[in-house]
Simulated scan of single mutants.
Amino acid sequence: MLAACVLLPCGVAGCGSGESRGRGDAVSSSPVGTVLADTDETGRHLREVPGGNAPEVGVQVTPGPGGWDVRLAFRHFRCSAPGARPTAVTGRGLAHLFVDGHRVARLRGHEYHLPGRLVRRGTHHVTARLYADDGTVWAVRGEPVQSTADITVSAAESGTAQP
């Protein structure tokens, strides 16, 4: 079993726990950053912010019981509480977790258990991407603020991870 991770070199900001609820497709008129015409693969517009104090995320994935334990580290970012107003606020929002480009969770915390059934035999890309509360994607230099870790599941593990 092989697990890789990407972590931030500096301090971590805290978040609450739980999963967010859908916010629709409305884009905030907030003066935070610049909403670009570009979107991510889910159709969410990018919200460009300067790189100096831009939000950052790191992701670490390790084997856990019945799957994988995902731990996020944030810099210049705090998760908003459930029910937060759908407005972009500097350095606030939630993280979406993707496996091989498919969203598997919306996170308002540092930890998530990724069920083994979602990562069968082979190498998979686990990506955490940061979103503002209005549904826009935090971006720097036209790229979403995100981090990816690769995990490889062996044949022996694959047999236990499948339903």
Rank of each mutant, 00 (worst) to 15 (best):
S20E: 08
L8F: 04
C15Q: 07
W138A: 13
I151W: 02
V12Y: 04
A13R: 10
A105M: 02
V89Y: 04
G43D: 01
P31G: 15
D133L: 09
T123M: 01
H124V: 03
L36K: 13
N53D: 15
A132S: 15
G51S: 14
T136E: 08
Q162H: 08
E111H: 12
L46Q: 15
P115V: 01
R106A: 12
N53G: 13
R85E: 15
P115Q: 03
L114T: 00
P9S: 08
S80Y: 06
R92W: 10
D38K: 15
Q60D: 14
G16Q: 01
G11A: 06
R120Y: 00
G33C: 13
F98K: 01
L72W: 11
A105W: 02
H110T: 04
V59S: 07
T148A: 06
A155K: 13
D150H: 05
R23T: 14
G58M: 05
R21M: 12
E157H: 05
V12W: 06
V32K: 07
D69A: 08
G58E: 06
P50V: 08
D100Q: 00
P82R: 11
P163D: 11
R106C: 13
P63R: 15
C5R: 13
E19G: 08
V145Q: 11
A132T: 14
Q162D: 12
L2G: 11
H76R: 11
A132D: 11
P9K: 07
C79S: 08
W68A: 08
A54E: 11
M1N: 08
F98Y: 15
T160M: 02
R71D: 10
T42E: 12
H113G: 01
P50H: 06
T90F: 13
A26D: 14
P31E: 15
P82I: 01
A26W: 09
G18Q: 05
H124I: 03
R47L: 13
S30V: 11
G11L: 06
D40V: 11
V140G: 04
C79H: 06
Q162R: 14
D133W: 10
I151R: 05
V35N: 13
L107W: 02
H125I: 00
L72Y: 11
D25E: 12
M1P: 09
R78A: 12
G91T: 09
G16D: 01
P63G: 07
A128Y: 03
G43V: 05
A128M: 03
H102M: 05
R103V: 02
P144H: 10
H110M: 03
R47C: 12
R23Y: 10
R120A: 05
P65V: 13
V119T: 15
A88T: 13
G18I: 06
A73Y: 03
R44N: 15
V59L: 09
G43L: 05
R120P: 01
T160P: 00
Q146V: 00
V119G: 01
P86A: 14
T152E: 11
S28Q: 10
L72M: 10
L118I: 03
G11Q: 03
L46E: 14
L8C: 03
A128C: 03
S28F: 10
V126I: 11
H76M: 04
H110W: 04
H110I: 00
D150R: 07
L118G: 02
A73P: 00
R92Q: 15
A95F: 11
R47Y: 12
A139T: 12
R71W: 05
G22F: 09
C15P: 07
T87I: 15
E143Y: 07
G109N: 03
D69I: 02
R47K: 10
A88C: 14
T152V: 06
G142I: 13
P50Y: 08
S80L: 04
